[in-house]
Nucleic acid binder design. Sequence first.
DNA 1: GAAGATTGACGGATCAATCTTA
DNA 2: TAAGATTGATCCGTCAATCTTC
Lengths: 156, 156
Amino acid sequence: MPKIPRPESSAAWGSVLRVHAALVPVIDQRLQASTGLSLAWYDVLLELNAADERRLRMSDLGDRVVLSRTRVSRLVDEMERAGLVTREANPDDGRSAYAVMTSEGRRVFRRAAPAYLAAIEDEFAATLSTSDLATVRRILDGVLAGHAEQSAQVRR
Amino acid sequence: MPKIPRPESSAAWGSVLRVHAALVPVIDQRLQASTGLSLAWYDVLLELNAADERRLRMSDLGDRVVLSRTRVSRLVDEMERAGLVTREANPDDGRSAYAVMTSEGRRVFRRAAPAYLAAIEDEFAATLSTSDLATVRRILDGVLAGHAEQSAQVRR
DNA sequence: GAAGATTGACGGATCAATCTTA
DNA sequence: TAAGATTGATCCGTCAATCTTC
């Protein structure tokens, strides 16, 4: 059964695109100005920090990161040179490599986090009520859940 | 007065980033597969189509476009070669140029629109109620309004 | 042969410099 | 001097090819 497109769908999607386009550069610049970290680097540190033992396989890191995605390999190169992460072999599988946050990486992340959160509060959340924020999150997470399921169906 | 970051803020912002990261490539590929148009080209046609007399100054087009942004000049080059837009001089101001949609551009846009709307309905809106869609739009448009005002304050 | 990861090559996005007109 | 637009150089992001291990 073909779904009939609703006008509200493209309107809401357009708002997502516009918010993203308007805010990402601004937040990126604020973060860089106050901490020296690009949003892409922060994104990697954020995911590693949240991960078990602060380490992720390269492919899992690629799946989670929302900015660079296919660029993780080179990104980790650069961050390794900067001393924020290291690569470690996986003893259980010689094909895969872990990216591991260093203690220096953790220090840098902790120092940058307040600036990141403040930028989001100012640029994104300032005019919204806490319940509006929770509502946006609930609805958009529903999109992601539905989307994951849809992709899974294709794979069957 | 410093605003204290709320946990809901970064959570909601994270959801925006994840939805964007997950859906843009999928919608782009669906659109290209069924119409041959990239999302960037469609974006330009969409803005020109909505504009008065289907024309915009290059800088205004750059402000509206959500994907390419700084690339409008070269984008219009390519689309001009493809016959979808033309450049026209502005009789009132010799510095500025208009990008104008051709009738061929309009034809291509009209043929592509159903595929674009269907992709959004399937990939983004399928699991959402119409009122959820309206809610997301209302809240995110509020972010944009507040953000425009904030930037305006900086300029003062 | 397939999964995990890296690399070279290419196209997209951005910055600064430039050109023209106001 | 500034606004509008384009261009060259450079960096980011992606695809396909490759290498290694399973």
